[in-house]
Design a protein around this nucleic acid. Structure first.
Lengths: 236, 236
DNA sequence: ACCTGAACACCGTTCAAGT
DNA sequence: ACCTGAACACCGTTCAAGT
């Protein structure tokens, strides 16, 4: 008799709704807790229903990255190439920082989606119209690597394992074993001022490295560097 | 009657044997195919037996990274700081390139093992004895990031999806949509000479970026850069 | 033709029952 | 006390059976 045993789902499932729900779920519970089954449950749907909108989990992850990419500001016209690239990269960074899982997921993709390609195209275009040769642009894009997307794989922390539990193993043993690490960690913790524990300003570190690279690029451009001069070791 | 239903396993299971088997298995079958169960089977042992030597899979992965790290050459004495750092980083790179899974696994670790800390300590030491302040050394280590370990997250490829299947979708559609990407990809493929497909020299790209950074570091050191001069934007 | 419950072939890890 | 088979609580995805 009851045609519908469940309340009617008025908003039908679409690829877009699936992707947005996945992003929200990953934001809330972390990427490792995101499964096709949990996502389906969140949407009030049987797991198999998702497969009509995404071919498999890999495609789901691709789509989730695209959602994050859509939050990047469009490129602003004018300005020198350095300013343009820096602004675009920092805007991408803002988008990715809003979704802690996104950097890791992007790095796990095996090939870029059209949305990612479009972003890369715009960055490459900034170098080309800024006077970089195709050759130099190629190497410069490699040198930027994932920093082009505003992200860096932070490799733990410069300050190793800031385990907040007191009395955890060997604080002075480490001091003897790894004197330079200890010196650095100490200085960073001190530098942070009031609250110890956090330590260092990721945004500053990112911009420091970005500026260093962009300045290096400009120097090579001015020199008319080309890879034919490989033996000259970057002109050094 | 038969006390032993299986042939006697003369070499008893040790942490070391577990780790070496795991490295070998990952080398052969890829990291995604490495499971506790498959590893146990490879060792002719019940899965649970592994848990006496590693607490869980995370610890197994930590140990596997340490095995790779053990293949890095010890630091050679003498030489300027740039030569010392470059040689050490390139040696680490050689070790990691020998195990295609290793970079990804290292990046997935949440805190460094003592072996990794020791490596970092030696690199930090090279900057410090080379005349870098604690402050500058800190930022410089961040700027190096995973490149300190000789690895870079390559973010797909500069040349997008070199799908070797002919007739795959839209070669000229892309050319219109992403003109700069297309230009770059074309130049790279051409540059590679005889065989199209591979495209570009990862080792050259790595050294290009490394040298660019090391030169930037040296310039800042000479200037006596300190983070107190944050507003000066890396002295630009 | 569409939809989906059950099943398949896995996981990492726990735990109680065996020796 | 040690060891381990079976079980638990998951996965992503296939597929045949239902409507």
């Amino acid at each position: 008799m009851a045609q519908q045993t469940e309340p009617v789902r008025r908003t039908p499932l679409t690829r877009d709704r699936v992707l947005r729900a996945a992003v929200a779920l990953a934001d809330e519970t972390g990427i490792e807790a995101l499964s096709m089954r949990k996502l389906a449950q969140e949407l009030g749907v049987v797991p198999m229903a998702l497969y009509k909108h995404v071919a498999n989990k890999e495609q789901l992850l691709d789509g989730m990255v695209d959602v994050v990419m859509s939050e990047i500001d469009p490129p602003a016209p004018g300005a020198d190439w350095q300013g343009a690239v820096r602004r675009r990269v920092l805007s991408a960074r803002r988008a990715f920082l809003g979704h802690p899982w996104a950097a890791q997921v992007l790095q796990s993709r095996t090939s870029p989606t059209p949305v990612v390609l479009a972003y890369m195209d715009s960055v490459i275009g900034m170098f080309r119209t800024g006077g970089f040769s195709v050759d130099l642009t190629h190497h410069v894009m490699h040198a930027l690597g994932s920093r082009m997307m505003g992200i860096t794989q932070e490799l733990f922390d410069a300050s190793p394992n800031p385990d907040p539990r007191p009395g955890s193993a060997a604080p002075q043993e480490d001091a003897g074993q790894f004197p330079y690490v200890t010196e650095l960690a100490g200085a960073v913790a001190h530098d942070a001022g009031s609250v110890v524990g956090q330590g260092c300003d990721d945004q500053f570190e990112f911009e420091f490295a970005l500026n260093l690279l962009l300045d290096g690029f400009e120097r090579l451009r001015q020199q008319g560097w080309s890879s034919a001069s490989r033996s000259r070791d970057n002109g050094r």
